[in-house]
């Protein structure tokens, strides 16, 4: 099993395509960091416009590494699924397209095992991608912008979290984002099992995510109460929950999370989807006639 996994990882990381995602992420993060370094205080000013009538909020203190990371994650995590799909959506259909699938499947490895190994490899790729995001968005930002308390602007509330109380939240948030992206990987992987060309599953995944994200962000009560709770994209935003704190008389309670059950529920829903997608992929692929 480990040997097979090594082979799959080897195949992933010997492809130039794999590194597109890493390069794209580096480029986006770099651009955001440059923009915030030179024009960040205006950006913060805009974000704190609701506060400025009542408070003097020092933009230079708000603009710190933790905050920059938070902005980057907000801008980036919506788009990382596309990069995940680029690899996960190619795992099976890419082999079919290349003509190597028939060789793989005629090897003494069960199809279930082959798929589990391939999915694990896609999962590892996803995790590495997120570690890369974390390295650049969090640790590099901490180096460039320093650290301070984290200012979280919410729709009707501002949360300020003390510097010592942040790092674990990021670790938790990245772990949650991993679950979300693994779900995307599973979706993409499932579509990949259905198809015999690479483009189809990748495009299909991206389309699903775009449509679901639009539905998630649309504030239409009809959808809010009917389909929205079932869209996995809604739950993928759950990582933000780790930055919503509880307060007592306006004072942030250290190590608190406003609504942990909701985050856990979102996480479980995502996992359920991931498992569903993976099992569907295996169920289908086991019966599939390899004609490619």
């Amino acid at each position: 099993m480990w040997q097979l996994l090594k082979i799959e990882l080897y195949k992933i990381f010997r492809r130039p395509r794999t590194f597109i995602a890493f390069a794209v992420i580096a480029a986006i993060i770099f651009l955001i960091q440059v923009a915030l370094k030179f024009g960040g205080e205006e950006y913060v000013g805009m974000m704190m416009s609701g506060l400025n009538s009542t408070f003097d909020a020092p933009a230079d203190q708000v603009m710190n590494g933790y905050f920059v990371c938070f902005i980057i994650l907000n801008l980036l995590l919506i788009h990382v699924p596309i990069l995940v799909a680029l690899v996960a959506g190619d795992m099976i259909s890419g082999e079919a397209n290349m003509g190597t699938l028939r060789l793989l499947v005629s090897k003494p490895v069960s199809r279930t095992q082959l798929l589990l190994v391939k999915f694990t490899a896609a999962g590892i790729y996803t995790i590495l991608l997120l570690l890369w995001v974390a390295l650049l968005s969090l640790f590099l930002s901490m180096l460039i912008f320093g650290t301070n308390e984290l200012f979280v602007a919410r729709g009707e509330e501002v949360n300020i979290i003390s510097a010592a109380d942040i790092l674990w939240r990021y670790i938790a948030a990245f772990a949650f984002a991993t679950v979300g992206l693994i779900t995307v990987a599973a979706l993409s992987f499932m579509l990949s099992a259905f198809a015999d060309n690479s483009i189809g599953p990748i495009v299909a995944t991206v389309c699903v995510i775009i449509v679901f994200t639009i539905l998630t962000q649309m504030q239409i009560p009809f959808y809010d109460n009917t389909i929205k709770p079932y869209l996995f994209t809604t739950h993928m935003l759950g990582w933000k929950g780790f930055f919503y704190v509880q307060g007592e008389e306006g004072v942030t309670i250290e190590r608190s999370i406003e609504n942990l059950p909701a985050i856990i529920r979102s996480g479980l829903i995502l996992l359920a989807y991931a498992v569903l997608f993976l099992f569907t992929a295996i169920w289908y692929f086991k019966r599939k006639n390899i004609l490619s």
Partner: peptide, 9 residues
């Protein structure tokens, strides 16, 4: 502008 997410509650 916000970083909101609707946790369904």
């Amino acid at each position: 502008v916000t970083f909101d997410y609707d946790d369904g509650t």
